[in-house]
Amino acid sequence: MDLPPLSQQQLAAIVTSASTPAELYRTLSDYEAEACLLSSQDSNQAELLSLYYSTFFFSHLLTDQIYEARISTKRMPQGLLQHDPSLQNCLNLLRAVWQRKYEQVYQVLRELPWSDPLKPIVQSYEAYFQEKTLKEISKAYEAIRPAAAATYLGLDPVTAAQADSTTVQKLTAYGWTWDQETGLLHPKPVVEDPQKDDRLYNELSEVMALIGNRRS
């Protein structure tokens, strides 16, 4: 029941051992109470807090909880949030993701200085974001100019605009088709298989029975 105490090593261990983002998020949120007890005045603890909250923030993003991520920034010690560079980076990232400014998202992820312990999770978020965006554009667009697609996916829009083969190849690898004549890419929607739940079948008949009972 009791968690091992929060420390930089423990955090690193959690990040590497978590098999899914959801699990990572759950484990980290269990630590929030403990983090709450630490003081941001103490410089050692402040460092740990910064790392903890940044990691926690990314675990929100990785599980697509953008509102929660925003709310979590409000729960952090506000003094720390204002002065800690990592957390400031997080805020910038949040703003870009929230407003769907794709260029900025990639810029923040790639160009801002992230501390070493954070780098793995930043990279995994970049990959996650790219893939999520790819799924979304494949659903939203029937035809898209390579430059636009490149901007969404954080590729170089200038070379993409010239329809260079690497960009196009990258995208055709996802099943997209390339129309040489019109210079447009036709994405193929990624259909996600909804999770099947056998319970539902039984419950549905219960509902119908219930409705039947009410009627009489």
Binding site: R100, K139, A140, A143, T182, L184
Partner: peptide
């Protein structure tokens, strides 16, 4: 629109036009 569509709150698709 792209933001609305991609976030799933609007059922629509976008097509870039050629020419």
């Amino acid at each position: 629109v792209a933001a609305l569509v991609m976030s799933g709150s609007l059922r629509a698709t976008l097509v870039h036009l050629h020419g």
